[in-house]
């Protein structure tokens, strides 16, 4: 499903990407092969594609993206809206996907990191994060980038300190903050 982009985009990237993507393709099978008791049908529009799936009514948008749609680029870091790793866009605004039920988001446009850009055709913010080394382990990075893309459209000032404030809902325990600020500012200057 949504993960198809991962495997197909691999042609344009480094051999590392190829080996990783090929190795994982077989695991990313079509989800929900069997009916699960107590689930309900929902239709979610993610990255421009409509997905009709059965989910647990208690499922957060985060867990639905990851466990049902297998869009695992969105990460879980706290499940409490405290770390920002799960940031996605709902109708273009940044939202902690762990703090909303999937069932409540059926008539909106959801964008995840996979929908922003893939190796070979990265979004300028993704390019900037590579160029400025705006990460170490990479785990919070999807959330940082989704937050940053939304932040650029928000009414903030032009200073580094504005970026630092606007990006403080996204924790990077590796502490790549100076490079994150550099990446975001590079994109803001291009805009």
């Amino acid at each position: 499903m949504g993960a198809a982009g991962v495997a197909t985009a691999a042609t344009a990237v480094t051999p590392l990407a190829v080996s990783a993507a090929i190795a994982e393709t077989q695991e990313r099978t079509v989800p929900q092969a069997q009916a699960i008791t107590g689930t309900m049908p929902v239709t979610l529009k993610v990255n421009g594609q409509s997905h009709s799936v059965q989910i647990d009514p208690r499922a957060t948008l985060l867990d639905t993206l990851r466990e049902t749609l297998h869009l695992t680029g969105t990460k879980k870091g706290c499940d409490h809206g405290q770390c920002g790793a799960c940031t996605v866009h709902i109708n273009g605004r940044r939202v902690n996907s762990c703090l909303t039920f999937a069932g409540m988001q059926q008539n909106v446009e959801i964008t995840t990191i996979e929908g922003l850009g893939q190796p070979g055709h990265l979004h300028p913010m993704q390019e900037a994060f590579v160029e400025h080394d705006g990460f170490q382990c990479g785990y919070c990075t999807s959330g940082q980038i989704m937050s940053a893309v939304a932040m650029v459209k928000e009414p903030w000032g032009t200073l580094d300190s504005d970026v630092k404030e606007a990006m403080s809902g996204n924790i990077c325990r590796c502490g790549a903050y100076p490079n994150i600020v550099a990446a975001v500012q590079a994109v803001r200057r291009m805009a």
Binding site: A17, A33, Q34, E67, P119, Q126, D133
Partner: peptide, 27 residues
């Protein structure tokens, strides 16, 4: 030298432990 794993990490394509999924997976 730019990280060779950079494009995977900025696109959500890098596979971390909990990203793995298999048919019949239980929680």
């Amino acid at each position: 030298t730019p990280r060779i794993d950079g494009p995977l990490k900025v696109s959500g394509s890098a596979m971390y432990a909990s990203d793995h999924h298999f048919p019949g997976l239980l929680y």
